[in-house]
Write a protein that binds this DNA or RNA. Structure first.
Lengths: 229, 229
DNA sequence: CGGTATCCCCCGCGATACTG
DNA sequence: CAGTATCGCGGGGGATACCG
């Protein structure tokens, strides 16, 4: 954004100088979503180069938005209170963007890894605790080689995501395609709707099939009303 | 911002692709503030080149945020309803930025023209109607040559701003410096405070002096609470 | 007044490799 | 895992002039 500033004292301008730099809103989004570690942040913005992420984190630190801390030897990035106050800004951005997104579901932007990473993050943990380990296997026929099969392992409140068979027996199989699962996660189509249209199939115990949609949490913007444009 | 997009389907990313491009938030701010004509917009973002402004307006039109219309022969730019829905975003940006601005009042960013333009826009019109024409002369000793004296002419609900004596008799003289007037307008210091500190002086009928602060409207963010950072 | 056209610089950022 | 280092290019955007 060649951010030399706008030369204006207006608060909108001053705020924009910092947080509307390229990638920065997305980095803040990741931090707001709870990502802490460098590579964790990277997974949320996979197309951003590591050096640029590093630059941005430093810029945000200088701006008083981010603070780096060490947790058992590892650096972690936290939002300061000033950073947390950006939540409404990012939220409004997403709320505004939701109808826009709906109008064009760009196939080129479908990204299984990103989707699965979001799903992993959103899983409501409590479920895992009640029923011991649960292993869900996602199968995307249309995903690129090496990204077709995903294992989501819920165990004792912890959630792991694997691209290689962790060896546990699979409790639930979800067979679908990237586009459908993305739309479901985005709130564009309802879970049951996808099932009925046979765009998404389930295999497993009835009880698990019933509870699955309750602990698979959708995008934070899935519920936003989307009036026609 | 080299806006090739972020390659993400997330609504925050999609929204950011459009409205966090360089200058765009400020252009939207100007439109939200009621600017309609091309050169009127330019005055709000004086450091932006006209070709770039033109580009951005077209991009915003393509994005469905702005619509160009012709009013008695002259092109005017309006926010569509999608564009108007950006008000909370820009507002939150300003509210967030206000404390940041306070911490550094960058002298280099003081701009009399911008300030006077903002003041002109904010003047509550009704006053002019009641009392016929009112001419206020602003005198900034520290302003650059040719920008020291400003005439604000309120006449029949219309407000004009001149850099050359329009010839009318002056009803009220305001003598101050750019930094002080900017701080007052930003809500950093109260009007009375500036008066008491003799950083700002008045000359004119007592009645007008009393009413002046009531129809000189301050920055939309003047009232925002600014906790220490 | 309301923009276009052009030119060119510069640096942001993408790519890739590498290190502690 | 958590970043740095380096390099090169592309094009964004600043400056300026000009046109309808």
């Amino acid at each position: 954004m060649t951010q030399r500033g706008y030369g204006q004292f207006c608060p909108v301008a001053k705020a924009a100088e910092i947080i509307t730099e390229r990638w920065t809103p997305l980095v803040i989004r990741e931090l707001l979503m709870g990502s802490r570690r460098f590579n964790e942040l990277r997974r949320g913005v996979p197309l951003m180069s590591p050096s640029l992420l590093s630059d941005r984190l430093k810029a945000l630190e200088r701006a008083g938005i981010v603070r780096q801390e060490r947790a058992n030897g590892h650096p972690e990035y936290y939002l300061t209170s000033a950073g947390q106050e950006l939540r409404p800004v990012v939220e409004m951005l997403g709320v505004w963007g939701q109808p826009w997104v709906r109008s064009r579901v760009d196939e080129a932007e479908l990204d299984v890894s990103l989707l699965m990473w979001d799903i992993r993050r959103g899983v409501r943990r409590r479920q895992g605790k009640r029923d011991g380990r649960i292993v869900v296997r996602f199968e995307y026929a249309d995903a690129p080689r090496g990204k077709k099969h995903w294992w989501l392992v819920l165990d004792g409140g912890q959630t792991d995501l694997c691209l290689t068979d962790p060896g546990y027996s699979v409790d639930l199989r979800v067979v679908t395609d990237v586009s459908t699962m993305t739309k479901v996660w985005m709130g564009d189509i309802a879970f049951g709707e996808a099932l009925r249209a046979r765009k998404l199939q389930f295999e497993g115990p009835a009880k698990l099939k019933r509870s699955f949609p309750t602990w698979l949490s959708l995008s934070p913007f899935a519920g936003v009303e989307r009036p026609e444009r």
